[in-house]
Simulated scan of single mutants.
Amino acid sequence: MEEQVNPITLTFDEKIDVLPPKNTLIFKLLQDLPLKKEENILEIGPADTEHLSYLLQKAKNITYTGTYFSDAGIKNVFSAYKTDGNNVEFAKITDNELDLQDNSFDWCFTADTIYFWPDPLKYLSESYRVLKSGGKMNLAFVEKNFGAHLPWTQLDFTFYETDEVKSLFKQSGFVNIEVRKMTETITDQNRKEITRPFVIVSGQKK
């Protein structure tokens, strides 16, 4: 792993309104996280900030770390985000590795990202490494039998079945692996609302 990169801590004075959770994959994943005060939370590959105000109000004094691939990318995604005394940190992914200390986080989660991971086993193994003993990883995704046939997923997507993801969790060292099947409401390319099934696989570090 390359030299440790210190996360950037951002704090802001202006408070933003906390909107109620939406009926979407990322919000449903977060609704199920029983966060406690002063816990450290890691998200792999956040695409936007829509869910952060909801996440940060779930428990007091939690620290959120989001991973990124390039400085430009993270600045574009998070430049408009504001908190009120919460810690929001960023850490870089380099060669499929997280520039983060071992045993640092209470929770790790990721939503709709596994399709783009060049090495899913490596990503899950890295997640396991940075979790504390007893910490949990929660991964939400759309299964192959549904996602692979969508017109906008024909390029650059690799879909998986639930059993494949469970196997990756086991190979990474996770125990107490659980599977939850849920649905979300999304807007398709024709601006019509559709119900899409998805799966949350979770595992615990020994």
Rank of each mutant, 00 (worst) to 15 (best):
L52I: 11
P46Y: 02
E39M: 13
F141A: 02
I177Y: 07
A91F: 03
N86E: 03
S172C: 07
T113R: 13
P120F: 00
D188P: 06
Y64F: 14
Y81I: 01
L55K: 02
P151D: 09
Y123E: 06
L168S: 02
F105Y: 07
Y68E: 11
E161D: 15
N40C: 12
L25D: 04
K37F: 10
F157Y: 11
P7C: 11
V130M: 02
V18S: 09
G134T: 03
L131V: 01
L150M: 12
V142C: 08
T94C: 07
L155A: 11
R129M: 01
E143A: 00
Q154R: 09
L35D: 04
L131W: 04
T9N: 15
I200M: 02
G173F: 06
D13P: 09
N190M: 10
Y128Q: 05
T158A: 13
K58R: 14
K28H: 11
I41N: 08
V5T: 13
A91W: 00
T24Y: 07
D84G: 07
A111T: 10
Y160F: 14
E184Q: 14
N6M: 13
Y68M: 05
T153Y: 02
L56F: 03
P120A: 00
T183L: 10
E164F: 03
T187E: 10
T195H: 04
G147H: 00
E14P: 09
K28L: 07
S53L: 07
N40P: 10
E2H: 11
P120K: 01
V5P: 08
T83V: 09
V5G: 11
E39C: 11
N6L: 13
E39Q: 01
P197K: 08
R180T: 04
T153S: 12
H149Y: 12
L19Y: 14
E193H: 12
C108M: 12
I26N: 08
Y64H: 10
L30Q: 10
Y128F: 07
V175F: 07
K75V: 03
V201L: 03
L55H: 01
G73T: 04
Y123D: 00
Q31V: 12
Q204A: 12
E43W: 01
L35T: 05
D188I: 05
I8V: 08
K122R: 05
G66N: 07
Q189N: 14
P7R: 04
S53I: 15
D99T: 13
L19C: 15
T9Q: 14
S167E: 15
L33G: 00
F198S: 00
E126T: 04
K60L: 15
Q154A: 13
K205M: 09
K144W: 03
V199M: 02
D102K: 12
T113V: 00
S202H: 01
Q31Y: 04
E97F: 11
D84E: 14
A59V: 12
T187M: 08
D112P: 10
K181I: 11
E178D: 14
L19N: 14
L55S: 01
V201R: 05
